[in-house]
Write a protein that binds this DNA or RNA. Sequence first.
DNA 1: GTTCTTCCATACGGCACCGTATGGAGCGTG
DNA 2: CACGCTCCATACGGTGCCGTATGGAAGAAC
Lengths: 192, 192
Amino acid sequence: MGMAQRRLSAEDWTGAALAAIADGGLATVAVEPLAARLGATKGSFYWHFTNRDALVEATMQLWERACTDAIIDLVEAAGDPPRKLSLLFTTVLGHARSSRLETNVLAVAEHPLVGPVVQRVTRRRLDYVEQLFTEAGFEAGEARRRALLAYTAYVGQAQLAARLPDLLPADTGGQGAYLDSVLTVLLSPAGG
Amino acid sequence: MGMAQRRLSAEDWTGAALAAIADGGLATVAVEPLAARLGATKGSFYWHFTNRDALVEATMQLWERACTDAIIDLVEAAGDPPRKLSLLFTTVLGHARSSRLETNVLAVAEHPLVGPVVQRVTRRRLDYVEQLFTEAGFEAGEARRRALLAYTAYVGQAQLAARLPDLLPADTGGQGAYLDSVLTVLLSPAGG
DNA sequence: GTTCTTCCATACGGCACCGTATGGAGCGTG
DNA sequence: CACGCTCCATACGGTGCCGTATGGAAGAAC
């Protein structure tokens, strides 16, 4: 933690806003508190942005870039589809902070500046997971359904991890067993 | 929509607060807007409640009573465990409004007056679903894991239904196929 | 119909945040 | 060292909500 820096950039503000969303949700993205946190005042903010909405918009663009592209690229480096799904789940549920961010972003998807971004991102992720299930050998309709189940399970998991962590497996062993079980179930052969 | 009633009860306020949570989240539970909606003023509110927190507390108690007991009782009337799970999912995901309420309540589980209630309710629901999987023949650990998967899938499904309904199966046929697929997968035999 | 209790409207002060206006510090450029 | 451009602190007015104070209307008791 160094001294407060002398001058701020727009990225400093969007970064702080993203952290605030992870901490307390979009409602805590308020100009004055953020300024205090950055060791500055509103004067700085209103030079970089026309108003709060502009900050929210820029922050959502940052989120879209940082929190979807990166993961897909990482996962694609793995081998077969089952391994990809496993890596996807472990990566995505590993860090508590990302769960909080995901959850708090989705929670305000009704906001006109947030909804379109969340919609794009979610659609893209769903398509990607569907592709993984297709590669794993499921026919189109079933692959879509499995992807939906996997993604809703992810969303719910992130939600519980962020809000009620006590209810999830606490020890590493339990988490591993749970992950194995989830993957086994999600990849179970399609019933006729 | 009848005329504004002459006098209000505490239940009128908690009911309106619950509706406001479903509509716009806990943040929209504000005394003056609620009063306007009820055709009254703050004067009424502060006679029935000491402050906003008291309303939030009473509203959460209402939610706990109304939105968990009822469903479990309903589901228990069904036959075998698979049918119970099926009924549970269809009932619980059927009405868009309940998804919004569920989602918006869980979203503010960090609030000190909300967290304990949500924790109690969620624990109880998880235990109940675990019991269903146990009745369906799964051993204890696996039943717990399936219950967790089923419940996280429910939470994620409610979230998407409330925020991004476009991404879920639109037609009734697609919904039915999806529900069948989910139940088949969740009840697939445990892998060795 | 008076009296008492219940319930509520109005008026007020306070707080947190938004956005604007304005002057001035810091730094590059000649 | 002057000059100009970039960046920011301060001060101000406006809004929406909280909670209090107070007087008064609506209904019950008799």
